[in-house]
């Protein structure tokens, strides 16, 4: 475990995440998240679907796969246009923070090739590499983000007791680790077998919810 990983995974790392709920705002509004137990179920679902996919993309980027090819693979695995745009916007924001924290030619090249933003997990993977982290580190940070973002947002949306939210995240810890390890293994396979070996799990309700959310006239979170 390295301090650089703690920084990269810190919710206060200035990379734009605070404005996003990871789909929790829709789920709260539609009655799918109502308390700590349903928050845990929501997080578990996100972790094993888009969380796994994002973690594998990040690990592959850290392992040295071509970021632009990974960016295409991320597009193919993100059916919702709204979520594709969100991921690129967060990628652009993360790139800015990462270039300040861990200056590197690889981050500069990615910014030049995708000035409007590459997908966030891809940027995170390249940033992790620039920070001297491992593919498993990148997968961990990404898998953790998949659950921490909705958990943090739910504290604000439902006024959920913050200790309960922290306990949900702690109980999910072993699953987050397991997903990160599976993601790293998939990333290794992708390096030898090609990017099609990356997981493509999806959560249709997250996609549909994100599309609906973007059309709301009033909302607390950007996504």
């Amino acid at each position: 475990m390295s301090a650089a990983l703690l920084l990269l995974a810190d919710g206060r790392f200035p990379a734009g995440g605070h404005a996003h709920s990871g789909g929790a705002e829709t789920a709260v509004a539609e009655g799918r998240i109502t308390d700590a137990a349903t928050l845990a179920e929501f997080c578990r679902g996100r972790l094993h679907t888009t969380g796994l996919v994002a973690a594998a993309l990040a690990a592959a980027a850290t392992a040295g796969a071509d970021p632009l090819a990974l960016d295409g693979a991320a597009d193919a695995r993100t059916p919702s246009p709204v979520l594709r745009a969100v991921s690129r916007r967060l990628g652009r924001q993360l790139l800015r923070a990462a270039r300040a924290a861990w200056p590197s030619p690889a981050l500069d090249r990615l910014g030049a090739a995708r000035p409007r933003g590459a997908h966030q997990p891809v940027v995170l993977g390249v940033a992790a590499r620039a920070a001297g982290l491992t593919p498993l580190d990148a997968a961990r940070a990404t898998a953790y983000e998949a659950v921490s973002s909705p958990a943090t947002a739910t504290v604000r949306l439902l006024a959920l007791d913050p200790f309960e939210s922290a306990a949900v995240l702690a109980r999910l810890g072993p699953e987050v680790d397991a997903v990160a390890e599976a993601a790293e293994a998939a990333a290794r396979r992708a390096l030898s077998e090609g990017l099609d070996a990356l997981p493509a799990a999806s959560a249709p309700l997250l996609d549909i919810g994100a599309e609906r959310h973007a059309a709301w006239p009033t909302r607390l979170f950007t996504s």
Partner: peptide, 20 residues
């Protein structure tokens, strides 16, 4: 800019969306 329930964060602690 949508500030995600936390307007002071967007102008002080995490300015990336505003910079963009």
């Amino acid at each position: 800019v949508e500030t995600g329930a936390c307007p002071h964060t967007a102008i002080r602690d995490d300015i990336s969306a505003n910079l963009e």
